[in-house]
């Protein structure tokens, strides 16, 4: 079905399995100015072990679709199927990394990361041991006893990533997890997330507005339109795996980036113009 799947380190039987099906999903918000259609009839599916990115201009409905897939939105149109079951709330196989600040300020780094295990009733010694492994992995060894307020924004985001990875979810949803990081950290952390994803064969959906990041990590990139949020185009990224941070300097990489950018530019400029017009209108 997809040429890129040849590059995945998956058994053939697994390739055919589809983990996540989004079928005609729409979401409308009622606001003071009227009804806003954030997402309009989006359909796509993600196969087991696949890494897919959604890219689109600010305000195009990325976080909305993220919340819907995470089961946090109750009223929407269409169907979301996880592992063959239609969801009606958060699915236990799904782990989420949120766009907004979500580390708990009243817990230390290690207690933040161990949180999902604590909730599941894992004994303290054991959950700390597991948590340490993931803290190491996101490069925060030595910061276990710090509180989030004592860390930088990027470090806090890494805590949030470790907290989600710690219970090894089958399906990983991430909403702009690297947005607060500098380019170098972003590449390195992207590398690590990619390695874990490949090791655990996690099905991953990454939401981003960074084209480089999307191309570096993904098997497919879904480009969204601005208002209403729809699937504009899906680009297969046929770069060999395993990929490292240095893939970004290859010629093929550059071509993908340019291709996606030309699609995205239309949407982004339309988005800017509409948002400005809207602001002027509500002022008048």
């Amino acid at each position: 079905m997809r040429a890129s799947s040849a590059n995945l380190r998956l058994a053939p039987a697994e390739i055919a399995e589809t983990d996540l099906i989004i079928d005609g999903v729409s979401k409308r918000f009622n606001t003071r100015e009227g009804t806003v259609t954030a997402v309009d009839g989006m359909s796509f599916s993600i196969e087991r072990g696949e890494f897919v990115s959604i890219i689109g201009p600010s305000g195009c409905g990325k976080s909305t679709i993220f919340s819907i897939l995470g089961g946090l939105v109750r009223s929407f149109d269409g169907r979301v199927t996880v592992n063959g079951e239609e969801i009606s709330g958060p699915h236990p196989a799904i782990g989420m990394v949120f766009q907004e600040e979500s580390t708990f300020p009243w817990r230390t780094v290690i207690d933040n990361v161990a949180f999902p295990l604590e909730v599941q009733g894992v004994a303290k010694a054991q959950r700390y041991e597991i948590a340490r492994r993931f803290i190491d992995m996101v490069g925060l060894a030595g910061f276990e006893q710090r509180y989030p307020s004592e860390l930088s924004g990027g470090m806090r985001q890494r805590v949030a990533i470790a907290r989600t990875l710690v219970f090894e979810p089958k399906i990983l949803l991430m909403d702009e997890p690297f947005a607060a990081l500098d380019e170098q950290t972003r590449l390195l952390l992207g590398d690590k997330v990619l390695k874990i994803q490949q090791d655990l064969r996690q099905t991953t959906l990454l939401i981003t507005h960074n084209i480089t990041e999307a191309v570096q990590l993904s098997d497919r990139v879904i480009i969204m339109t601005f208002r209403p949020g729809r699937v504009k185009r899906i680009v297969d990224i046929r770069l060999p795996r395993p990929r490292h941070g240095d893939v970004v300097s290859s010629e093929a990489f550059g071509r993908y980036v340019a291709e996606i950018w030309s699609d995205l530019r239309e949407e982004a400029s339309r988005g800017m113009a509409e948002t400005e017009a809207g602001a002027r209108q509500s002022k008048a």
Binding site: L72, G89, P92, M96, S102, F104, V119
Partner: peptide
């Protein structure tokens, strides 16, 4: 309480008491 904290809780399927 920040909505994102509550969302984290929901995403881990916490019971109302938890």
């Amino acid at each position: 309480v920040r909505k994102s904290f509550i969302n984290v809780g929901h995403s881990y399927k916490l019971t109302p008491a938890q």
